[in-house]
């Protein structure tokens, strides 16, 4: 029963971690893309540099969500309490 409880809690916490961990990066990516679009609209000749920087920044932001995913996977597959 205890092991079952731990598994249930683990799955719940993994889902919570991914869900809340994805929340912040999603907002941040939206803002970043919006700012980049505005900048490209204002300065179309700098679109190349802007989009390259945007991709790098998006990857950086996405890393935060990936951290949450890694934690969730750790909880699911490498749980030390199971």
């Amino acid at each position: 029963m205890t092991a079952d409880l731990v598994q249930v809690v683990s799955i719940l916490s993994a889902a919570l971690a991914v869900g809340f961990g994805a929340l912040g990066p999603a907002l941040a990516e939206g803002r970043a893309v919006a700012a980049a679009m505005e900048a490209i609209a204002r300065q179309p000749e700098a679109a190349g540099t802007l989009s390259r920087t945007l991709f790098v920044g998006l990857a950086m932001i996405e890393t935060t969500a990936i951290y949450a995913l890694v934690v969730a996977l750790l909880v699911l597959f490498a749980n030390p309490f199971v």
Binding site: A59, E62, T63, I66, Y67, L69, V70, L73
Partner: peptide
């Protein structure tokens, strides 16, 4: 560590 985890997480999550 963040360098490790970033690459690992991205690629691994994609595969996963």
């Amino acid at each position: 560590f963040s360098l490790i985890v970033r690459l690992f997480g991205n690629v691994m999550s994609g595969v996963f």
